[in-house]
């Protein structure tokens, strides 16, 4: 007698907790850089979510999480840009690697091509997005904004691979996560 009712509370909790995960991963490890202040693990968290949950969830958690992280770590001026860039990152990566929840539970591998595609998309969105948006809206000019590109490429590229590995590790260590995949 399994029941499926509308489950707004569970959906809200899922989004809130995953967003908080992105926030914590973002402020946990800080490697200072000239541009955005610091490199961090946010791409890892966002890609973990993209490989495990739905594209919409990845969009909200990625965007909201990095924006809140910017606000509470003293870089609030970056919040709108982070919201757009990382939200888009979560959405696109999740769309590229999307599998049925059955496949995710059974740890069916994502094809190498898709992983590479996700990496390329992720790098373009993050490095390119920060470059363009910060040059225009943060009024940095293109020359100064370019200083952030190398760090962002490395961080987001590694994020995709590590996020994938983390997704598999978590499903193995905590099988009941499968019950949350459909929300």
């Amino acid at each position: 007698m399994e029941k499926r009712k509308s489950n707004s509370a569970l959906r809200t909790s899922l989004i809130a907790v995953l967003t908080a995960v992105v926030v914590v991963f973002t402020i946990l490890v800080k490697i200072p850089t000239p541009t955005k202040g610091y490199l961090n693990l946010c791409d890892l968290a966002i890609c973990f979510i993209a490989f495990t949950f739905s594209p919409l969830t990845a969009l909200i958690a990625g965007g909201l999480g990095t924006a809140i992280a910017d606000i509470i770590s003293g870089y609030p001026q970056w919040a709108p840009i982070s919201f757009v860039v990382h939200g888009l990152e979560g959405l696109v990566v999740a769309l590229i690697v999307k599998r049925s929840s059955q496949d995710i539970s059974n740890l069916v591998k994502v094809s190498t091509i898709k992983v590479i595609l996700a990496m390329v998309a992720c790098v373009i969105i993050v490095a390119g997005g920060y470059f363009v948006l910060s040059a225009i809206f943060m009024s940095l000019g293109f020359a100064a904004a370019a200083a952030g590109i190398p760090g962002n490429i490395g961080q987001s590229g590694i994020g995709v691979i590590a996020g994938y590995a983390l997704s598999r590790a978590v499903i193995k260590a905590y099988p009941p996560v499968q019950g949350l995949l459909n929300y």
């Binding site: 569970l10 983390l166 905590y174 949350l180």
Partner: peptide, 15 residues
């Protein structure tokens, strides 16, 4: 990994 497991475990109880 374990930080994620601990976090995911809180989702149903938060709901």
């Amino acid at each position: 990994t374990s930080a994620l497991v601990v976090s995911l475990k809180t989702i149903p109880s938060l709901a």
